[in-house]
Design a protein around this nucleic acid. Structure first.
Lengths: 223, 223
DNA sequence: GTCGCTTAAGACCTCCGACGTATCAGGTCA
DNA sequence: TGACCTGATACGTCGGAGGTCTTAAGCGAC
């Protein structure tokens, strides 16, 4: 195994074992390199790799720190990876989202606060009746994120955030080409919101399923 | 932005835009560094980072290649990230798994082949009636992986694979401390398998839910 | 002619040392 | 007291020198 890979494993080990805790500062590059028995250049490769996936936070002129390691932060790296997906796998991503999103929406129905409900309502009102497709999709992302955050599960939230990216393009494409896709999306958003206000988890789940399934169905028939 | 980060973005751009396709070979380090306008050392940091998340495959003595970019491969990196989770987030991971796994099991009920059913049965038979906790958990992972693979969704499969890691420790702990956890797990596995054989998606879904919920409940009462 | 070994070229691996740049703390001066 | 300056510290970048591994061409024995 290459020395850099060993260094990655060793740093990982230090964090997992608790020798390094969230927020801790690492020894300076030259010292850590000496400790781990490799050159500063090779160590930097290891640190850079861990910093790409948000394990480490490198601040020039200051030092290198362990991040908070929050699931939210760590899964942010997921979206970077997901950007590389190929178009022929959009359906698989969408299928997973179709499983998670209704579940998250149902969970949110039991926990969402009145303030959050009001905020979602205001957001939909702001969009108006006839928005541009780009505005709609941006608003769509925001709407669903707001709901999923109310599920109270940050892992679920980050995961859905990461998975939503790839399907965005598909949604824009649909909005541009399918008759009444915009109006349908708006109506479904209102329905989901109404179900949340009623604290009706099953209705919320069903509307979320319908909402995503409509995109999925269109995509399947188009490909 | 640092030159290395720029290089990461540029290489990512080359792949996403299609200039570099899966399996393609990158120019050699010295050439690519010159093309991107940075030193070989800095470029190596970028390449190393992308190789950690399985975007690039570096082969000493040969060259650097773009990987297949399969969801399965890309999400493998997820397990690396998930290893850093802290124990207090196990419940959140488990909650997500509780959503995904029953859905995947239900999907598998409609698609799993007779050969795969036989393989799963043989696997359970091999384990016997009174296995060690470690053997049981290893077998548990294998069992669920086999089922999820039959769901036919590789994104779902890889995601669950990544999420199952963190909960493994918890399952071992439970097996060692809770009365009859081993026997209960074995019975539930048999029940899931029977539902799959019957092509009964709803029964399969329910048994999978029960199976995971029992771990979740125990963990919640223990913490 | 085919198989197996040798050899050389190509590409990545590791290291060193030097200099550039950003941050922060402490001191200085109005 | 507060703004500014300055030095120490740590990360950022670079160029070059060997080292190691993979591959394939070359070559001899069977």
């Amino acid at each position: 195994m290459a020395v850099t890979d060993e260094a990655i494993e060793k740093i990982k080990g230090m964090i997992v074992s608790g020798a390094l805790r969230p927020g801790d500062r690492l020894p300076k590059e030259s010292e850590l390199a000496a400790d781990l028995g490799l050159s500063r250049n090779s160590l930097r490769e290891a640190v850079r790799a861990l910093s790409l996936i948000r394990i480490l936070d490198v601040r020039q002129g200051d030092g290198t720190y362990v991040t908070s390691l929050d699931p939210q932060l760590l899964l942010e790296a997921l979206s970077f990876v997901v950007d590389f997906h190929r178009d022929d796998t959009v359906l698989e991503f969408l299928a997973v989202r179709r499983i998670l999103e209704p579940a998250a929406t149902a969970m949110a129905a039991l926990r969402i606060s009145e303030q959050q409900l009001d905020a979602l309502t205001a957001q939909l009102d702001r969009l108006g009746e006839d928005p541009s497709v780009e505005d709609l999709v941006a608003c769509d992302l925001e709407f669903h994120r707001g709901i999923v955050q109310s599920s109270g599960n940050s892992v679920l939230c980050s995961l859905l955030d990461g998975l939503s990216g790839p399907t965005t393009r598909a949604r824009i494409w649909r909005g541009l080409t399918q008759e009444d896709a915009v109006g349908r999306t708006l109506r479904e958003h209102r329905a989901i919101l109404a179900a949340l206000r009623d604290r009706d988890a099953e209705a919320a789940r069903s509307w979320a399923t319908v909402h995503i399934a409509s995109v999925e169905q269109w995509l399947r028939s188009t490909l």
